[in-house]
Amino acid sequence: MDTLTNSGSDSRPTTIGILGAGKVGTVLARLAVASGYRVLIASSRPPAAIALTIDVLAHGAEVTTASDAAGRADLVILALPLGKAVPRDGHQALPVGELRDKIVIDAMNYWWEVDGKRPDLTDSGATTSELVAALLPGSRVVKAFNHMGYHDLDEGPRPSGDPDRKAIALSGDDVAANEVAADLIDSLGFDAVDLGPLAEGAVLQPGRELFGANLSAAEIRDVVEQAAA
């Protein structure tokens, strides 16, 4: 494994920005509101176009623009289609300036049905989160919330210590950022399993061993150990 960077201690975020108002984005918004976070949510559509949907699916979340959500949030989750975040023409779709120096959790996956045939996302030898990190050189990118189906994510939260509590795996190159992401995962009702650097998150991608996993922390560690054997 590569050596991780430790950027020092981070205070617990109080405001979560979510870029993407689809199924995963709205579930995460709902869980975060229920856990006491202030939530700012945005999509590629104007705020007024998603306001009613968010009021129904994530009541309590504030609808705004992507730049505003990224600028005001302490931590930002990317839950939009990967093809929009990493556009084919090189046009920067993410609010890079507002995301600078912030922890950015990548919850995205590559789906050819949505993103189109994208060899640039599949044939580079890097994980998709590493590609996202390359677009956000000033951000601290963590991969998380991508391997569990949104139904399981919605129905899965349990208090710490519950024998039926499920786990969410994460990966990232910044130890302190990983710890903040793990704390967020715990506060939303799941155990966190830190796999190490972003490159180790390959096991979380579609078609790999942990994709679709709705498992306990111990079970996730067993799958990772077997995959590495």
Rank of each mutant, 00 (worst) to 15 (best):
A126W: 03
D164P: 00
D115P: 07
A144N: 11
S160G: 10
R158H: 12
N109G: 08
A167R: 01
S160V: 14
A107V: 05
S171C: 14
E155D: 14
D123R: 14
S139G: 07
H147T: 14
A85F: 05
H91N: 12
G90T: 11
V142L: 08
V175M: 11
M148I: 15
G83L: 07
P95Y: 10
A85R: 05
L121S: 01
S124D: 02
R165V: 08
A134C: 05
V96Y: 02
T128D: 07
D123I: 00
L99Y: 11
V114Q: 12
Q92M: 15
M148N: 02
R118V: 07
G116A: 13
E98I: 09
D152I: 00
A85S: 13
A169I: 11
I105M: 13
G172I: 08
S160A: 15
G156A: 09
H151N: 14
D162P: 03
R118I: 05
L131C: 01
A133Q: 14
L131H: 02
P87H: 12
V132P: 01
A126G: 00
K102G: 13
Y150A: 10
V142H: 07
W111M: 12
R88F: 08
H151L: 15
G83Y: 05
N109L: 10
T128W: 00
T128N: 06
V175N: 01
H151V: 15
D106V: 04
I168Y: 04
A133R: 03
R140W: 10
S139V: 10
V175F: 05
K102D: 14
Y110P: 06
